[in-house]
């Protein structure tokens, strides 16, 4: 992995929102991470920690307050030229949490999926457009007959496949999946996750996978980043994070995953973590190398206590 070029390289990203003269929300406060081609990076952390904001800054729905975002060899953190916008909008795609809310109910599946092709004028003929949609439908486990239906005529899992098809048809290098499976039931989650992995094997696509279900994140990700209050507290391979969590917040997060083994789960209580009373100051911490790809955000004194 060492000599490979990252596909996405985010350095010291800050995304602030000014609410009033006196008050600014520091949603993302100096976050760095990178994703290699063909890799899945999982982003976890409590509600409000800044996960979606990172996704939205990276795909440039926001103007970053500070920091750099390098995507596919191009710095996309500043003002973008038309060709850079075109490059970004085709090579980076996003899948959203609620498939029903993100699919236009009055448009046929064919037109929903072809939307990106239409916007960027990527098809020469009507026939080519249809053929591309049919191919992608098959890839996500639907059939060409589905092309003429409307979103409400599909089950939750099938709708999420339409969302994936719409992202895939652009043949992107990176897909940001923001809570893309959280609303689905276990068996359907498994279908969607298997599909994402299979497509990754075929096309070497990279995923930024945002979720709060850690067991799914562990299953799908190669590396994981733990976010809290806008700070990336710990990052590493899933083995590094799950077998050697260093930061107390990561430890409490892992201890809170309910295990599906009743005889153990009934007697377990989770570790608690309260930032306000912990004595930890994120603003003073820096990134510390533990080993391999494992990094922890801490002051030298904090690190001494935790290791």
């Amino acid at each position: 992995m060492d000599n490979k070029q990252p596909l996405l390289d985010v350095k010291d990203l800050k995304q602030f929102f000014r609410i009033s003269n006196k008050f600014t929300v520091k949603a993302v406060n100096g976050v760095s991470f990178h994703i290699y081609p063909g890799e899945t990076y999982g982003l976890v952390g409590e509600s409000g920690s800044g996960k979606s904001t990172i996704g939205r800054s990276v795909i440039r729905l926001y103007d970053p307050t500070a920091g750099t975002i390098n995507f596919d060899g191009v710095d996309i953190s500043g003002k973008l030229s038309d060709t850079e916008v075109q490059h970004l909008r085709t090579n980076m795609q996003m899948i959203f949490q609620d498939p029903m809310a993100s699919l236009n109910p009055r448009r046929k599946v064919l037109d929903i999926i072809a939307q990106g092709l239409d916007v960027h004028h990527l098809c020469k003929s009507k026939q080519e457009r249809e053929e591309k949609v049919y191919q992608i439908l098959e890839k996500v486990g639907l059939s060409r007959e589905h092309a003429n239906r409307y979103p409400h005529q599909f089950s939750g899992g099938q709708r999420q496949r339409i969302g994936i098809a719409r992202a895939l048809i652009m043949n992107p290098k990176l897909i940001i999946a923001d809570e893309a499976i959280s609303a689905l039931d276990v068996s359907i989650q498994a279908q969607v996750v298997n599909l994402m992995k299979e497509i990754q094997r075929e096309t070497n696509i990279a995923f930024l996978f945002i979720a709060h279900d850690l067991s799914m994140v562990k299953y799908i990700s190669d590396r994981i980043g733990v976010l809290h209050l806008g700070y990336l507290l710990e990052t590493g391979t899933k083995e590094e994070i799950f077998s050697n969590p260093v930061h107390p917040y990561t430890r409490s997060l892992l201890s809170a995953i309910p295990l599906s083994n009743p005889r153990i789960e009934k007697h377990r209580t989770s570790e608690t973590y309260e930032y306000e009373t912990s004595g930890i100051d994120y603003a003073k911490g820096v990134s510390n190398h533990i080993d391999g790809t494992h990094y922890v955000h801490a002051t030298p004194e904090e690190l001494k206590v935790w290791l």
């Binding site: 276990v186 068996s187 298997n194 067991s215 799914m216 299953y219």
Partner: peptide
């Protein structure tokens, strides 16, 4: 059986999750 098989297991690194076929 299908429901229990489909849940991800924290202790394994299996490559494919089990899903219940059909709808």
């Amino acid at each position: 059986w299908g429901l229990l098989s489909a849940m991800p297991d924290l202790d394994t690194f299996d490559d494919v999750l089990y899903t219940i076929p059909g709808s």
